[in-house]
Design a protein around this nucleic acid. Structure first.
Length: 103
DNA sequence: CTCTTGACCGACG
DNA sequence: CCGTCGGCCAAGA
């Protein structure tokens, strides 16, 4: 049974529509409403008990970079994002601002 | 309860 | 542009 904080993170991730992405900072801000709890958000996604259910791959770093991700690396993730219609180049999200989804 | 770790962010040099 | 420092939050040992 995950903690409530994680449930909140997963809920927000699910809210991200296809073809859009979000950042850890944005989620942290929407949840904690404080400076930067992005680390906690990352941890919640890292555990991600709802792996296929939660599109955690739509969450990227505020720098438009894919970030760490333990899903066999960032490469399979980029492929998946491109499949969703998000263009990723050189490990960075193209038109990041345009695909960025805010809560 | 205290210490360490982590899919982070922003500022500084 | 890139490397480094500090800060914030949550979970695990």
């Amino acid at each position: 049974m995950p903690t409530q904080f994680q449930e909140q993170v997963y809920a927000l991730c699910k809210q991200i529509p296809k073809g859009k992405v979000s950042t850890y900072g944005a989620i942290a801000k929407a949840l904690n409403k404080r400076g930067h709890a992005a680390r906690a958000v990352g941890q919640a996604l890292n555990k991600n008990p709802y792996a296929p259910s939660v599109p955690c791959h739509r969450v990227v770093s505020s720098d438009a970079s894919i970030g760490g991700f333990g899903f066999g690396g960032t490469v399979p993730k980029i492929e998946l994002l491109e499949k969703e219609g998000i263009q990723v180049h050189n490990g960075k999200v193209v038109r990041f601002k345009s695909v960025l989804y805010t809560f």
